[in-house]
Design a protein around this nucleic acid. Structure first.
Length: 482
RNA sequence: UCCUAAAUAGCUCAGUCGGUUAGAGCAUCUGACUGUUAAUCAGAGGGUCGCUGGUUCGAGUCCAGCUUUGGGAGCCA
């Protein structure tokens, strides 16, 4: 199906007649020969096509520049030069599309990531971004594979939702109303009965609630789809549109949930290490170059070493109460180096999480049993524990070095009365989520689940520093060009 | 949204105390050389110094506002 790609061509036997179709990375001319490095994105490697001087006519040769697209027909031969095992001896060359060197922004040189963000339509043609996109694909594939192998069903939860009670953040409004001529009710409010769905609708901030409905029928489901948050977040870890993986399992308690999260993350990272060796090696070298400008003590582990470390070591599991204890006894707390005070009941700040993960444990950490007051209404309430100053819920956050929270999850409250009471306490109308509450009314069951930010996973695996560089076309405040 | 730094050639940056004609490397073009590896060497072209206003005899440089971007914080995945 379709032409053979460079990845396969590089593995063909010498003497094979091949057709190479791809984009020119560099062209080098010498007295006796012309060298063209071609890449088609199937691999990080280029294939070198060689022609005798004068073999390609002047007019055609002039059009072969960095960024142009070509088709080359020739024989795969052992390379006469060092640097590559095989090359294509050109018999015929055709230029599909030119790329005027005066205007094509990608030059055969290093570009800053900031500049490449401004040309997001072309940056997949760079080594760095094609490597990231191949790794991103591989991780997505591994995720589906893992869940399929473990008896999960891929549930497609809705993108458009009428529930604004999920409490996961600001939402994007979905409407077909004419914004210049909004229909009004008698009280002067916007009349959403006139809107497409006959009610207020938004883009989803989480598929969890619907995911729970699926788990209460299929036992184990997962969602993997786009998620939207209209928060005015300007950080290297946030996007307005991102992809989230949300497994939800009946008959899973918190412990099972943690075991699954850890096994799952290790599997998908391991899958990428196994299947993206070339790309990861390239990114590792790139990072090492970048780190050269940093002082010795700030340099981090080589990328592959870091990934293997995470795969082969057990995540540290501590309760929120234990974590607060560690922080209270920590040096930065005693020396008042933390910007935010530590006390039982606070929501842990970035600096606290970083201390626990990067300084204290030096490995991924799963924090559990957070105070009820700082967590969502749907989390299962723990029985009172004399060792804990206040009420807690069966929540779990998986914290990764450099990324922070990569997974947030919990065992869910399966007791109807407790759930309704909690909803009243936090100001959510139970009537609005009557369908959600029905699962607790009819055949309720212990169950649990979590949400994994896909881009944060890609960020960790690729070693990149900004989340806008691990999604093809990032959506962020004041930024939706491509 | 807050804090902070920045914006000068296609890209990455330098530009001293406010002073004459705006600097480099890479890229591009031309030539030389070479089974080359992001080739090398020589030369050439390339600038509304983010925008608006102000201070000044004189502003890339100082001041104010705005815009955009980087980093950090909050919100979270």
């Amino acid at each position: 199906m379709g032409p053979i790609q460079i990845k396969q061509i590089l593995e063909c036997k010498i003497g094979t007649q091949v057709v190479v179709k791809g984009w020119v990375r560099t062209k080098r001319e010498s007295k006796n020969a012309v060298f063209i490095a071609i890449n088609d994105g199937s691999t990080i490697h280029t294939i070198q096509a060689v022609a005798e001087s004068g073999q390609i006519n002047e007019d055609t040769l002039r059009l072969i520049t960095t960024g142009s697209c070509v088709r080359v027909v020739g024989l795969l031969v052992a390379s006469a030069g060092a640097g590559q095992a095989v090359e294509v001896k050109i018999e015929e060359v055709e230029v599909y599309g030119t790329a005027d060197p005066d205007h094509y922004p990608l030059q055969p040189k290093k570009h800053s990531l900031e500049f490449l963000r401004e040309i997001a339509h072309l940056r997949p043609r760079t080594n760095t971004f094609s490597a990231i996109l191949r790794i991103r694909h591989t991780l997505a594939f591994a995720i589906n594979q893992y869940f399929n192998d473990h008896g999960f069903f891929y549930l497609h939860t809705p993108i458009i939702t009428a529930s604004d009670a999920e409490g996961a953040g600001e939402m994007f409004r979905v409407t077909t109303l004419d914004l210049n001529k909004l229909p009004r009710t008698d009280e002067g409010k916007i009349d959403f009965k006139e809107d497409f769905f006959g009610r207020e609708t938004n883009l989803t901030v989480s598929g969890q609630l619907e995911g729970e409905l699926g788990a209460m029928a299929l036992s184990k489901i997962y969602t993997f789809g786009p998620t939207f948050r209209a928060e005015n977040s300007n950080t290297t870890r946030h996007l307005a549109e991102f992809w989230m993986i949300e497994p939800e399992m009946a008959f899973f308690e918190l412990e099972d949930n943690m075991n699954l999260a850890e096994d799952f993350v290790k599997y998908v990272i391991g899958y990428a290490v196994q299947h993206c060796a070339d790309d990861l090696e390239f990114l590792q070298k790139r990072l090492e170059e970048e780190e050269k400008s940093k002082p010795q003590n700030e340099r981090s582990m080589p990328l592959l070493e870091k990934l293997n470390f995470v795969i082969s070591n057990a995540f540290e599991r501590v309760t929120y109460t234990e974590a607060i204890d560690i922080l209270l006894k920590s040096k930065p707390h005693k020396e008042k180096k933390f910007q935010y005070d530590v006390a039982w009941g606070i929501d842990l700040q970035s600096e606290h999480e970083r201390f626990l993960v990067e300084k204290h444990f030096k490995k991924p950490v799963i924090l559990t049993n957070y105070p009820r007051a700082i967590k969502s209404f749907y989390m299962k309430q723990n029985d009172p524990n004399p060792a804990e100053p206040g009420a807690t819920v069966r929540a779990m956050d998986v914290l990764f070095p450099g990324i922070g929270e990569i997974i947030g999850g919990s065992q869910r409250e399966d007791n109807y009365d407790k759930l309704v009471t909690r909803m009243h306490e936090v100001g959510i109308e139970p009537e609005a989520l009557w369908w959600y509450l029905d699962t607790r009314k009819f055949g309720t069951a212990p169950h649990a689940g979590f949400g994994l930010g896909f881009e944060r996973l890609v960020l960790f695996v690729t070693g990149m520093g900004n989340i806008r560089d691990v999604i093809p076309f990032p959506r962020a405040p004041k930024s939706a060009e491509f």
